[in-house]
Amino acid sequence: MEALMRVTDTIKSIRETRFSALRAPTEFFDVNRISRPADLNQATHRISYNTRYFSGNYGLIVALLAVYALLTNFLLIFAVLFLVGGFAAINRFAPDPIQVGEHVVTQKSLYTGLFVIGIPLLYISSPFSTFFWLVGASAVLILGHATIMEPGIESEYAQVQESV
Rank of each mutant, 00 (worst) to 15 (best):
T130M: 08
D39F: 05
R33M: 07
Y68Q: 13
E156S: 13
T72Y: 00
Q107T: 14
A63P: 11
L143E: 04
N41S: 14
N91Y: 08
I153W: 15
A89K: 05
A88F: 12
G113L: 06
S129I: 14
H103S: 08
D96M: 12
T44L: 15
F74M: 12
I117K: 11
N73A: 07
A21G: 03
A94T: 15
M149I: 03
T44A: 09
P151L: 01
I34N: 08
P95T: 10
H45A: 15
V105F: 10
I117T: 15
Y157A: 15
N50T: 08
V135H: 06
N50Y: 08
I153P: 04
V100E: 03
G59P: 04
Q99N: 09
G118C: 05
L121A: 11
A94L: 12
R46I: 04
V104F: 02
Q42C: 13
N41D: 15
A38S: 12
Y68N: 02
V140P: 00
F28R: 06
S35H: 11
I98H: 02
F19D: 09
T44S: 07
A21R: 08
A137S: 12
R36N: 15
N32P: 01
L71C: 14
T106N: 06
F19T: 00
S48Y: 09
S35L: 00
P127K: 04
A94Q: 14
H145W: 05
M149A: 09
S126W: 13
F132T: 05
S13Y: 03
T106P: 10
I61M: 04
A69V: 01
S109C: 12
V67D: 02
K108P: 08
N41G: 15
N57A: 01
G152Q: 04
T26Y: 10
A66K: 05
Y123S: 14
R23T: 09
H103N: 07
I148M: 12
D39R: 11
Y58P: 00
A69F: 03
A24P: 01
L64H: 02
F29C: 00
S125N: 02
L141E: 05
S129A: 10
P120D: 11
V105R: 09
G59W: 04
L60G: 10
F29R: 08
L64Y: 07
Y49P: 00
I119F: 13
I124M: 14
S138W: 00
F28H: 07
V80S: 09
